[in-house]
Design a protein around this nucleic acid. Sequence first.
DNA 1: TTGAAAATCCGAAACGTTTTGGAAAAATGA
DNA 2: TCATTTTTCCAAAACGTTTCGGATTTTCAA
Lengths: 338, 338
Amino acid sequence: MTTIKDIAKAAGVSVTTVSRALNGYSDVSEKTRKKIIDIAKQLNYSPNTLARSLVMNKSKTIGLLVSGMTRSAVKDNFTFEVMTGVNDYIAKTDYDVILFNTNSTKQREKTYSQLCRERRVDGVILQGIKTDDPYLTEVVESDIPCVLIDIPIQSDRVGYVTTDNVYGAKKAVQHLLELGHRNIAMMNGHDYAFVSKQRLQGFYEAMEEANVPIRKEWVVNGDFSEEMAEARAYELFTNEPNITAIFCASDLMALGVMKALKQLHLRVPDDVSVVGYDDILLASYVSPALTTVAQNKFQMGYEAASMLIDMLEGNEAKVVTLRTQLVVRESTAEVKKG
Amino acid sequence: MTTIKDIAKAAGVSVTTVSRALNGYSDVSEKTRKKIIDIAKQLNYSPNTLARSLVMNKSKTIGLLVSGMTRSAVKDNFTFEVMTGVNDYIAKTDYDVILFNTNSTKQREKTYSQLCRERRVDGVILQGIKTDDPYLTEVVESDIPCVLIDIPIQSDRVGYVTTDNVYGAKKAVQHLLELGHRNIAMMNGHDYAFVSKQRLQGFYEAMEEANVPIRKEWVVNGDFSEEMAEARAYELFTNEPNITAIFCASDLMALGVMKALKQLHLRVPDDVSVVGYDDILLASYVSPALTTVAQNKFQMGYEAASMLIDMLEGNEAKVVTLRTQLVVRESTAEVKKG
DNA sequence: TTGAAAATCCGAAACGTTTTGGAAAAATGA
DNA sequence: TCATTTTTCCAAAACGTTTCGGATTTTCAA
């Protein structure tokens, strides 16, 4: 592997000059620069990023810390879409992405900042970690620039991008209300997700503004899991036959709910209306097609990467809130009279 | 950021001793080792991987070079599943994954080996590149350990993992033959994919063994794209009304074909049977559910990572061929008597 | 021609590790 | 006690780059 030294020797100059020639400094004559570049090309030289990073004290690397890279997460390819967005932006820069994964216990033995400092990443993007994750407290304490996805924590070193969860949920519930539903349940995620709290709030706001009483026992947690949601929904609808509509905090859970309804011989949307959240790929393919609140996951990743690079270039951490959109499909209908 | 030097000073020993203590060498007394470890913990030390990599001449990093990280690739989450498999294996090792992306023209300005050498990756996994990609020739020429996915190229430095494409395709076509079909078309990918060639061969073998004549004009290329496949299928089925079944080299193309058939008011599977390849998530959700050849993409990634790490530890490159499985769903039926 | 300014170049230190070859200290055996 | 072995430690070089401060050469105006 040829180094800067080899080039220097071949060109009869010092390593300093080679370095400065290759990096476009002005204090090297065009003649020698040309010679050096030619020789570099001829010797098939590529710079050693490790050495450079070491001395420059920045690695031109960002860490991507996601939780959703599991076998089971392929259905809801939220993680993948976010990653794609990140990748898309980063590809336009001179940074590279290094993948940390949080699912393995192996990595879990290291703390967040250990993970980052060992690899000397310049910044991190975090997605999918729970609010009680020890990593989270570390993020704010550490001085590594960081942008969070769907976690509203901010400091001068950490920004975040999220969607208008409260408003999105509100729109979904209002849609149900407009269809005449009054007995509306909610399948929420879990207490360790900010989005759950926010979507619950949206649910509350919509109901209260419409002067519809809220039945607390009609709000259950499905842990963002299809199976769990199915089980919970089965219980709920057997015990509470008056429910005519349910708002789910994720499409995956909505699928679970629909499975439960099928088992109970309740038709969607004739007997009960279902609305989801996310607009995952499957939403438009299941039958009936799912009414849902769409969020642009690709853009979330893209914006996160953009913000992080901005921060690395000296700008300050921001908050980006993307708009959601209610997509009405076939799983919601007017409430039955009587 | 505390370094090994700081620890040495605090402990009153040399950096050598600190290094050797921390790395578990035997030539340091338990007493001093304990002291050093305590101080390291207390100073919140984490080793600088860059410096280590530089001197050790290995980065404990593998490159992941995928082509499918695009917005349009979310439907067919082949790439994501492979990545998940890779990630799953790597998580158990002390390696990290660095993400290269081939779609950006920015990166494309660098050659394959430049990409790898700059970041000093110890090895690479390549997925989704075409057979005419200039990267490919570089792979074999370069001396970087590499494992390819679905590309049958082998040397002492490069291995690959793939599935039994010929046999898989053969099973799919045989299934159609057993249902009584004789007028069978094929929607292939493109000429720059090995899997296309192999699946075509499987198609041929099945037909020939059953003594069914092959109509070359019934084999068309859909470029692995849903839209392209839809257009091609539309042409094909308007011009050739005798076709009763079609084998597609990917599920995504099968979806496109089904769209075309719907437009032409041909029912699946009553009028024409469709079988796909891959078993993507959507396959079981579309209506009618798609009969297809399932391949375990997660395992492909997992095996690839496993092989690569093996190679980095001195073992030689291998070839791993995974089995596929025909999954019969609703899109295939017996040919109409007519 | 001369002096100053501008243009080129370079030596050496630094970044944070690992490793080599040996030195010093302690333990052991006679 | 002394010689020998074993244990424990260390100085210095090396990895490949960047950069600081200064040195040398060239250019140019007077």
